[in-house]
Design a protein around this nucleic acid. Structure first.
Lengths: 161, 161
DNA sequence: ATTTCGGTCATACTTTCGGCCGATTTTGCC
DNA sequence: GGCAAAATCGGCCGAAAGTATGACCGAAAT
Protein backbone atom coordinates (compact mmCIF):
# COMPACT_ATOMS: atom_id res chain seq x y z
CA UNK A 1 0.00 0.00 0.00
CA UNK A 2 1.88 3.00 -1.29
CA UNK A 3 -0.50 5.54 0.17
CA UNK A 4 -0.34 4.09 3.64
CA UNK A 5 3.44 3.92 3.45
CA UNK A 6 3.63 7.56 2.51
CA UNK A 7 1.25 8.41 5.31
CA UNK A 8 3.25 6.68 8.01
CA UNK A 9 6.43 8.14 6.56
CA UNK A 10 4.85 11.57 6.67
CA UNK A 11 3.73 11.14 10.25
CA UNK A 12 7.13 9.91 11.30
CA UNK A 13 9.25 12.59 9.68
CA UNK A 14 6.69 15.37 9.56
CA UNK A 15 8.77 17.82 11.56
CA UNK A 16 11.97 17.17 9.70
CA UNK A 17 10.32 17.40 6.30
CA UNK A 18 8.49 20.56 7.20
CA UNK A 19 11.65 22.09 8.54
CA UNK A 20 13.59 21.20 5.41
CA UNK A 21 10.92 22.48 3.07
CA UNK A 22 10.49 25.76 4.90
CA UNK A 23 14.24 26.18 5.02
CA UNK A 24 14.44 25.75 1.25
CA UNK A 25 11.56 28.15 0.78
CA UNK A 26 13.24 30.72 2.96
CA UNK A 27 16.48 30.40 1.03
CA UNK A 28 14.70 30.90 -2.21
CA UNK A 29 12.76 33.84 -0.84
CA UNK A 30 15.84 35.49 0.53
CA UNK A 31 17.73 35.03 -2.66
CA UNK A 32 14.87 36.34 -4.70
CA UNK A 33 14.34 39.34 -2.44
CA UNK A 34 17.99 40.20 -2.33
CA UNK A 35 18.17 40.13 -6.05
CA UNK A 36 15.12 42.14 -6.81
CA UNK A 37 14.71 44.58 -4.00
CA UNK A 38 17.82 44.92 -2.00
CA UNK A 39 20.47 44.76 -4.64
CA UNK A 40 18.77 46.36 -7.56
CA UNK A 41 15.81 48.34 -6.31
CA UNK A 42 17.20 49.26 -2.87
CA UNK A 43 13.98 48.44 -1.16
CA UNK A 44 15.86 48.05 2.08
CA UNK A 45 12.98 48.61 4.43
CA UNK A 46 10.94 45.92 2.78
CA UNK A 47 13.76 43.49 3.18
CA UNK A 48 14.07 44.31 6.86
CA UNK A 49 10.33 43.87 7.23
CA UNK A 50 10.46 40.47 5.66
CA UNK A 51 13.31 39.47 7.94
CA UNK A 52 11.32 40.69 10.89
CA UNK A 53 8.25 38.80 9.79
CA UNK A 54 10.21 35.65 9.18
CA UNK A 55 11.89 35.66 12.52
CA UNK A 56 8.75 36.62 14.32
CA UNK A 57 7.20 33.53 12.80
CA UNK A 58 10.26 31.57 13.81
CA UNK A 59 9.93 32.85 17.35
CA UNK A 60 6.27 31.93 17.50
CA UNK A 61 7.03 28.48 16.16
CA UNK A 62 9.85 28.09 18.65
CA UNK A 63 7.72 29.14 21.57
CA UNK A 64 4.85 26.87 20.64
CA UNK A 65 7.21 24.00 20.01
CA UNK A 66 9.25 24.31 23.14
CA UNK A 67 6.80 25.56 25.71
CA UNK A 68 6.15 22.83 28.21
CA UNK A 69 2.51 21.97 28.67
CA UNK A 70 1.00 22.26 32.08
CA UNK A 71 0.29 18.85 33.45
CA UNK A 72 -3.13 18.39 34.92
CA UNK A 73 -3.81 15.15 36.72
CA UNK A 74 -7.35 13.93 37.01
CA UNK A 75 -8.08 10.95 39.17
CA UNK A 76 -11.07 8.98 38.01
CA UNK A 77 -12.48 6.33 40.22
CA UNK A 78 -13.17 3.25 38.24
CA UNK A 79 -15.40 0.61 39.65
CA UNK A 80 -14.17 -2.87 39.13
CA UNK A 81 -16.79 -5.55 39.40
CA UNK A 82 -15.30 -8.31 41.45
CA UNK A 83 -15.67 -11.69 39.87
CA UNK A 84 -17.41 -14.29 41.93
CA UNK A 85 -14.51 -16.64 42.25
CA UNK A 86 -14.79 -19.93 44.01
CA UNK A 87 -11.50 -19.50 45.73
CA UNK A 88 -11.65 -16.36 47.75
CA UNK A 89 -8.41 -14.47 48.00
CA UNK A 90 -8.37 -11.79 50.68
CA UNK A 91 -7.50 -8.34 49.45
CA UNK A 92 -4.10 -7.93 51.09
CA UNK A 93 -3.93 -4.35 49.90
CA UNK A 94 -7.19 -3.52 51.63
CA UNK A 95 -6.01 -5.21 54.81
CA UNK A 96 -2.80 -3.21 54.76
CA UNK A 97 -4.66 -0.03 53.98
CA UNK A 98 -6.98 -0.61 56.91
CA UNK A 99 -4.00 -1.55 59.08
CA UNK A 100 -5.63 -4.75 60.26
CA UNK A 101 -3.43 -7.13 62.19
CA UNK A 102 -3.43 -10.87 61.55
CA UNK A 103 -5.33 -11.56 64.73
CA UNK A 104 -7.95 -8.97 63.92
CA UNK A 105 -8.60 -10.49 60.53
CA UNK A 106 -8.86 -13.86 62.22
CA UNK A 107 -11.45 -12.57 64.68
CA UNK A 108 -13.25 -10.83 61.86
CA UNK A 109 -13.54 -14.07 59.95
CA UNK A 110 -14.98 -15.98 62.86
CA UNK A 111 -17.31 -13.10 63.57
CA UNK A 112 -18.60 -13.24 60.02
CA UNK A 113 -19.20 -16.94 60.43
CA UNK A 114 -21.77 -16.08 63.07
CA UNK A 115 -19.82 -17.04 66.16
CA UNK A 116 -20.48 -15.21 69.40
CA UNK A 117 -17.65 -13.45 71.18
CA UNK A 118 -17.44 -16.32 73.67
CA UNK A 119 -17.27 -18.89 70.88
CA UNK A 120 -14.55 -16.92 69.14
CA UNK A 121 -12.66 -16.78 72.42
CA UNK A 122 -12.97 -20.55 72.83
CA UNK A 123 -11.92 -21.17 69.26
CA UNK A 124 -8.79 -19.06 69.56
CA UNK A 125 -8.07 -20.16 73.15
CA UNK A 126 -8.02 -16.61 74.43
CA UNK A 127 -10.26 -14.75 76.81
CA UNK A 128 -13.53 -13.02 76.09
CA UNK A 129 -11.97 -9.72 77.08
CA UNK A 130 -9.36 -10.07 74.38
CA UNK A 131 -12.01 -10.70 71.80
CA UNK A 132 -13.79 -7.55 72.87
CA UNK A 133 -10.55 -5.61 72.59
CA UNK A 134 -9.99 -6.94 69.10
CA UNK A 135 -13.55 -6.09 68.23
CA UNK A 136 -13.03 -2.54 69.41
CA UNK A 137 -9.99 -1.96 67.23
CA UNK A 138 -11.78 -3.63 64.35
CA UNK A 139 -14.77 -1.32 64.72
CA UNK A 140 -12.51 1.70 64.89
CA UNK A 141 -10.45 0.67 61.89
CA UNK A 142 -13.50 -0.23 59.85
CA UNK A 143 -15.31 2.86 61.09
CA UNK A 144 -18.40 0.99 62.20
CA UNK A 145 -20.39 0.59 65.39
CA UNK A 146 -21.61 -3.00 65.27
CA UNK A 147 -20.30 -6.42 64.38
CA UNK A 148 -22.91 -6.78 61.65
CA UNK A 149 -21.74 -3.55 60.07
CA UNK A 150 -18.16 -4.72 60.39
CA UNK A 151 -19.04 -7.93 58.56
CA UNK A 152 -20.84 -6.06 55.82
CA UNK A 153 -18.00 -3.61 55.38
CA UNK A 154 -15.27 -6.23 55.49
CA UNK A 155 -17.13 -8.22 52.89
CA UNK A 156 -17.47 -5.17 50.64
CA UNK A 157 -13.74 -4.51 50.98
CA UNK A 158 -13.04 -8.15 50.24
CA UNK A 159 -11.24 -8.73 53.48
CA UNK A 160 -13.42 -11.75 54.16
CA UNK A 161 -15.41 -13.96 51.76
CA UNK B 1 17.61 25.22 52.83
CA UNK B 2 19.61 27.46 50.50
CA UNK B 3 21.11 24.62 48.50
CA UNK B 4 17.78 23.01 47.74
CA UNK B 5 16.32 26.38 46.81
CA UNK B 6 19.13 26.97 44.36
CA UNK B 7 18.69 23.51 42.92
CA UNK B 8 15.00 23.89 42.24
CA UNK B 9 15.64 27.37 40.88
CA UNK B 10 18.30 25.96 38.59
CA UNK B 11 16.04 23.21 37.31
CA UNK B 12 13.25 25.64 36.69
CA UNK B 13 15.18 28.30 34.85
CA UNK B 14 18.02 26.20 33.46
CA UNK B 15 17.35 27.08 29.85
CA UNK B 16 16.98 30.77 30.50
CA UNK B 17 20.08 30.93 32.63
CA UNK B 18 22.11 28.99 30.12
CA UNK B 19 20.90 31.25 27.39
CA UNK B 20 21.76 34.37 29.35
CA UNK B 21 25.19 33.13 30.31
CA UNK B 22 26.17 32.11 26.82
CA UNK B 23 24.91 35.40 25.51
CA UNK B 24 27.10 37.22 28.01
CA UNK B 25 30.03 35.02 27.08
CA UNK B 26 29.55 35.78 23.40
CA UNK B 27 29.39 39.47 24.13
CA UNK B 28 32.57 39.30 26.08
CA UNK B 29 34.20 37.33 23.31
CA UNK B 30 33.19 39.80 20.71
CA UNK B 31 34.49 42.67 22.75
CA UNK B 32 37.71 40.92 23.40
CA UNK B 33 38.18 40.24 19.71
CA UNK B 34 38.44 43.84 18.72
CA UNK B 35 34.79 44.48 18.54
CA UNK B 36 35.05 47.69 16.62
CA UNK B 37 36.75 46.12 13.70
CA UNK B 38 34.28 43.36 13.45
CA UNK B 39 31.38 45.67 13.83
CA UNK B 40 32.69 48.05 11.29
CA UNK B 41 33.36 45.34 8.76
CA UNK B 42 30.15 43.41 9.22
CA UNK B 43 27.79 46.14 10.15
CA UNK B 44 25.09 44.96 7.81
CA UNK B 45 25.15 41.35 8.88
CA UNK B 46 25.16 42.38 12.50
CA UNK B 47 22.23 44.65 11.96
CA UNK B 48 20.28 41.89 10.27
CA UNK B 49 21.23 39.54 13.10
CA UNK B 50 20.00 42.00 15.68
CA UNK B 51 16.75 42.44 13.83
CA UNK B 52 16.40 38.71 13.62
CA UNK B 53 17.08 38.23 17.31
CA UNK B 54 14.72 41.02 18.25
CA UNK B 55 11.85 39.71 16.21
CA UNK B 56 12.48 36.15 17.24
CA UNK B 57 12.13 37.36 20.80
CA UNK B 58 9.02 39.26 19.81
CA UNK B 59 7.58 36.15 18.22
CA UNK B 60 8.29 34.09 21.30
CA UNK B 61 6.74 36.72 23.49
CA UNK B 62 3.72 36.98 21.23
CA UNK B 63 3.21 33.25 21.15
CA UNK B 64 3.50 32.88 24.88
CA UNK B 65 1.23 35.85 25.46
CA UNK B 66 -1.49 35.02 23.00
CA UNK B 67 -1.51 31.28 22.71
CA UNK B 68 -3.85 29.35 24.90
CA UNK B 69 -1.91 27.59 27.58
CA UNK B 70 -1.21 24.00 26.71
CA UNK B 71 -2.78 21.65 29.18
CA UNK B 72 -1.80 18.07 29.20
CA UNK B 73 -4.40 16.05 31.01
CA UNK B 74 -3.35 12.84 32.64
CA UNK B 75 -6.20 10.65 33.70
CA UNK B 76 -5.34 8.23 36.42
CA UNK B 77 -7.82 5.49 36.98
CA UNK B 78 -8.17 4.46 40.57
CA UNK B 79 -9.55 1.00 41.02
CA UNK B 80 -12.39 0.69 43.45
CA UNK B 81 -13.39 -2.84 44.27
CA UNK B 82 -17.14 -3.16 44.19
CA UNK B 83 -19.18 -6.11 45.18
CA UNK B 84 -20.82 -7.47 42.07
CA UNK B 85 -24.33 -7.58 43.39
CA UNK B 86 -25.76 -6.45 40.10
CA UNK B 87 -27.15 -9.78 39.08
CA UNK B 88 -28.31 -11.04 42.41
CA UNK B 89 -31.69 -12.70 42.30
CA UNK B 90 -33.09 -13.95 45.58
CA UNK B 91 -33.73 -17.64 45.60
CA UNK B 92 -37.52 -17.65 45.70
CA UNK B 93 -37.56 -21.40 46.10
CA UNK B 94 -35.40 -21.18 49.21
CA UNK B 95 -37.61 -18.45 50.61
CA UNK B 96 -40.71 -20.56 50.06
CA UNK B 97 -39.04 -23.61 51.46
CA UNK B 98 -38.06 -21.72 54.60
CA UNK B 99 -41.56 -20.23 54.74
CA UNK B 100 -40.22 -16.70 55.08
CA UNK B 101 -42.77 -13.90 54.79
CA UNK B 102 -42.14 -10.75 52.77
CA UNK B 103 -41.65 -8.70 55.87
CA UNK B 104 -39.23 -11.17 57.32
CA UNK B 105 -37.05 -11.13 54.23
CA UNK B 106 -37.14 -7.36 54.38
CA UNK B 107 -35.98 -7.33 57.97
CA UNK B 108 -33.36 -9.90 57.13
CA UNK B 109 -31.95 -7.69 54.41
CA UNK B 110 -31.67 -4.66 56.64
CA UNK B 111 -30.15 -6.84 59.34
CA UNK B 112 -27.50 -8.00 56.89
CA UNK B 113 -26.76 -4.38 56.05
CA UNK B 114 -25.63 -3.94 59.62
CA UNK B 115 -28.60 -2.03 60.97
CA UNK B 116 -29.55 -2.42 64.62
CA UNK B 117 -33.05 -3.50 65.56
CA UNK B 118 -33.94 0.08 66.42
CA UNK B 119 -32.63 1.32 63.08
CA UNK B 120 -34.59 -1.34 61.24
CA UNK B 121 -37.68 -0.31 63.17
CA UNK B 122 -37.15 3.32 62.19
CA UNK B 123 -36.55 2.38 58.59
CA UNK B 124 -39.73 0.35 58.32
CA UNK B 125 -41.76 2.73 60.49
CA UNK B 126 -42.72 0.00 62.92
CA UNK B 127 -41.90 -0.55 66.55
CA UNK B 128 -38.84 -2.19 68.01
CA UNK B 129 -41.01 -4.93 69.45
CA UNK B 130 -42.20 -5.91 66.02
CA UNK B 131 -38.67 -6.19 64.76
CA UNK B 132 -37.87 -8.47 67.65
CA UNK B 133 -40.86 -10.61 66.81
CA UNK B 134 -39.77 -10.84 63.20
CA UNK B 135 -36.29 -11.70 64.37
CA UNK B 136 -37.67 -14.48 66.51
CA UNK B 137 -39.51 -16.13 63.67
CA UNK B 138 -36.48 -15.61 61.44
CA UNK B 139 -34.20 -17.31 63.93
CA UNK B 140 -36.59 -20.20 64.31
CA UNK B 141 -37.10 -20.64 60.57
CA UNK B 142 -33.40 -20.36 59.83
CA UNK B 143 -32.58 -22.51 62.83
CA UNK B 144 -30.01 -20.13 64.27
CA UNK B 145 -29.44 -18.37 67.55
CA UNK B 146 -27.91 -15.04 66.53
CA UNK B 147 -28.43 -12.38 63.91
CA UNK B 148 -24.91 -12.90 62.60
CA UNK B 149 -25.64 -16.58 62.09
CA UNK B 150 -28.89 -15.68 60.41
CA UNK B 151 -27.05 -13.40 58.02
CA UNK B 152 -24.45 -16.05 57.24
CA UNK B 153 -27.07 -18.69 56.70
CA UNK B 154 -29.34 -16.50 54.60
CA UNK B 155 -26.39 -15.57 52.44
CA UNK B 156 -25.46 -19.20 51.98
CA UNK B 157 -29.04 -19.98 50.98
CA UNK B 158 -29.02 -17.05 48.54
CA UNK B 159 -31.90 -15.33 50.27
CA UNK B 160 -29.91 -12.11 50.51
CA UNK B 161 -26.90 -10.87 48.48
C1' DA C 1 17.75 2.15 76.22
C1' DT C 2 13.47 3.76 75.10
C1' DT C 3 9.56 3.75 72.39
C1' DT C 4 6.15 1.52 69.69
C1' DC C 5 2.98 -1.98 68.66
C1' DG C 6 0.43 -6.24 68.69
C1' DG C 7 -1.54 -9.23 71.64
C1' DT C 8 -3.20 -10.38 75.94
C1' DC C 9 -6.37 -9.77 80.06
C1' DA C 10 -9.36 -7.51 83.48
C1' DT C 11 -13.15 -4.67 85.67
C1' DA C 12 -17.18 -2.00 85.53
C1' DC C 13 -20.70 -0.16 83.15
C1' DT C 14 -24.36 0.77 79.38
C1' DT C 15 -26.73 -0.69 75.49
C1' DT C 16 -28.56 -3.98 72.55
C1' DC C 17 -30.11 -8.46 71.58
C1' DG C 18 -32.60 -12.65 72.18
C1' DG C 19 -36.13 -15.63 74.46
C1' DC C 20 -40.55 -15.99 76.03
C1' DC C 21 -44.77 -14.71 77.14
C1' DG C 22 -48.75 -12.41 75.70
C1' DA C 23 -51.86 -9.46 72.78
C1' DT C 24 -54.41 -6.87 68.90
C1' DT C 25 -54.89 -5.51 64.18
C1' DT C 26 -54.56 -6.14 59.37
C1' DT C 27 -54.83 -8.82 55.23
C1' DG C 28 -56.17 -12.23 52.00
C1' DC C 29 -59.10 -15.80 50.91
C1' DC C 30 -63.00 -19.22 50.87
C1' DG D 1 -68.72 -13.14 57.71
C1' DG D 2 -65.37 -16.16 59.31
C1' DC D 3 -60.84 -17.90 59.33
C1' DA D 4 -55.82 -18.25 59.06
C1' DA D 5 -51.73 -16.14 58.27
C1' DA D 6 -49.22 -12.22 58.55
C1' DA D 7 -48.08 -8.20 60.78
C1' DT D 8 -48.20 -5.37 64.53
C1' DC D 9 -47.13 -4.14 69.55
C1' DG D 10 -45.84 -4.53 74.58
C1' DG D 11 -43.28 -6.20 78.81
C1' DC D 12 -39.85 -8.72 81.20
C1' DC D 13 -35.41 -10.71 82.02
C1' DG D 14 -31.08 -12.66 81.18
C1' DA D 15 -27.48 -12.98 77.85
C1' DA D 16 -24.63 -10.97 74.73
C1' DA D 17 -22.52 -7.13 72.76
C1' DG D 18 -20.30 -2.93 73.10
C1' DT D 19 -17.75 1.15 75.84
C1' DA D 20 -14.21 2.92 78.67
C1' DT D 21 -10.17 2.44 81.01
C1' DG D 22 -6.11 0.50 82.59
C1' DA D 23 -2.58 -2.87 82.75
C1' DC D 24 1.10 -6.41 81.38
C1' DC D 25 4.31 -8.66 78.22
C1' DG D 26 7.42 -9.46 74.40
C1' DA D 27 9.19 -8.39 69.99
C1' DA D 28 10.72 -5.00 66.90
C1' DA D 29 12.17 -0.58 65.77
C1' DT D 30 14.90 3.57 66.79
Amino acid sequence: MQVADFKSFWIKYKDILLYGCSMAACMFLLNWMELRFVVYDHAFELFIGCIALLFTALGIWLALKLSKPKVQTIIVEKEIPVLSTDHFVPDEAAIRRLDLSKREVEVLGLMAKGLSNQEIANTLFISLSTIKTHNQSLFVKLDVKRRTQAIERARALRVIP
